[in-house]
């Protein structure tokens, strides 16, 4: 799909804003702090950032699906689990080098997403959402039947594989830290570039009005398929890194809707759906709430639920939606302004 920008326009197209320039400087500071963290932070800090990074990446990918593609999936845990299991199988049974296995896990997950999409794309709206959940449950039950993978109890990553990554635990944690950082930054950058392209414009148009987008020649179905497969690839990569970090996988933990998709949806809804900034804010809010409420046991989940309901009722555009509306700022200017 191509778009032609006419030559010699009587105005210039500006895409950055003052806020985006300030934010860019802020991101550079955060980037430097994050890259140097292993040298000045503790191991607990690294583990927290690793978790933050994969939740951020997962939330951004779900936001791409639901916020831009209009595909509200509650079955993304299927791809987290597939990515995790693909990594464990390749590393443990086929001696694939771990870093290559992580990448290939994304590819394998995307391949699994093709027949999954064929099935769930026959549904729409709420039926699509439920359908994705059902498919994830089918994957969970299927993996629980495979005795080679430990059945319902799951399996641990063999020591030989763990040692092949690095003999030292600290070095291994640093490697996982940088992988998670690369994953989060890679996903955010990829989505930013994608949404600024004519493809992103088409995606936004489909979200706004499918009929109008289609009548202008946007390949609706193909675009949605592409978004779904891209999200599956990224989510599969996340799954591989998550379970490399955990060193153990089981069907219940890998394909858990409450551990993964419920939190991801919370993050995106709180932060602001349909924006790149929303999932970042949402992940921050999620981690702050989780930290503050850590000592309250089950009340923690109840409180998160109440927060989500209140935000959905009072500010359906999320925290970032409120800020952007009030101050008219955009940190990731995926649109264009003419001057």
């Amino acid at each position: 799909m191509t778009s032609k920008i006419p030559e010699s326009l009587p105005f210039s197209i500006v895409r950055s804003t003052f806020a985006s320039k300030v934010a860019f400087l802020g991101f550079i500071v955060v980037f430097i702090a994050a890259v140097t963290l292993p040298w000045w932070g503790g191991r607990a800090d690294m583990r927290l950032v690793v978790e933050f990074c994969y939740y951020l990446a997962l939330a951004q990918l779900w936001n791409l699906l639901a916020g831009y593609g209009g595909l509200v999936s509650i079955g993304q845990q299927a791809f987290i689990g597939l990515g995790g299991y693909a990594f464990f199988m390749m590393a443990a049974f086929f001696d694939v080098p771990p870093l290559l296995a992580i990448f290939l896990s994304g590819v394998v997950t995307m391949l699994f997403a093709i027949p999954t999409a064929f099935l769930v794309f026959r549904l729409s709206g709420a039926y699509f959402a439920i359908g994705t959940w059902v498919v994830a449950e089918v994957y969970r039950l299927s993996f629980a039947q495979v005795s080679t993978l430990g059945g319902g109890s799951g399996m641990s990553l063999p020591i030989s594989v763990v040692k092949s990554i690095s003999a030292s635990k600290l070095e291994r944690e640093i490697l996982i830290y940088f992988l998670a950082l690369l994953l989060a930054m890679g996903v955010v950058t990829a989505l930013y570039v994608l949404l600024r392209s004519s493809w992103g414009l088409a995606l936004t148009a489909i979200r706004d009005s499918e009929a109008a987008a289609e009548s202008l020649g946007v390949k609706k179905q193909m675009t949605k398929y592409a978004v779904y497969l891209f999200a599956a690839f990224g989510t599969g990569l996340c799954g591989a890194i998550i379970f490399l970090n955990k060193l153990r996988i089981s069907p219940d933990s890998a394909f858990s809707v409450s551990d993964w998709t419920a939190n991801i949806i919370f993050i995106v809804v709180i932060g602001g759906i349909g924006t790149l900034e929303g999932p970042i804010i949402g992940t921050l809010v999620f981690f702050i709430l989780r930290g503050v409420l850590a000592d309250f046991g089950a009340w923690y989940m109840i409180f998160l639920g109440i927060v989500a309901v209140v935000v959905m009722l009072k500010a359906p555009q999320g925290v970032w939606g409120l800020v952007a509306k009030r101050y008219g700022i955009q940190l990731f200017p995926v649109g264009r302004k003419l001057m």
Binding site: A205, D208, A211, A212, A213, L216, G335, K337
Partner: peptide, 25 residues
């Protein structure tokens, strides 16, 4: 086609709506 009810894209600016028309190349 100019669809019934206009069906503009609310998230996009006037300029971006117009650019959408040129996606066919």
């Amino acid at each position: 086609m100019v669809p019934e009810g206009r069906q503009l894209f609310p998230s996009l600016s006037v300029e971006e709506n117009l650019r959408m028309g040129s996606l066919s190349g």
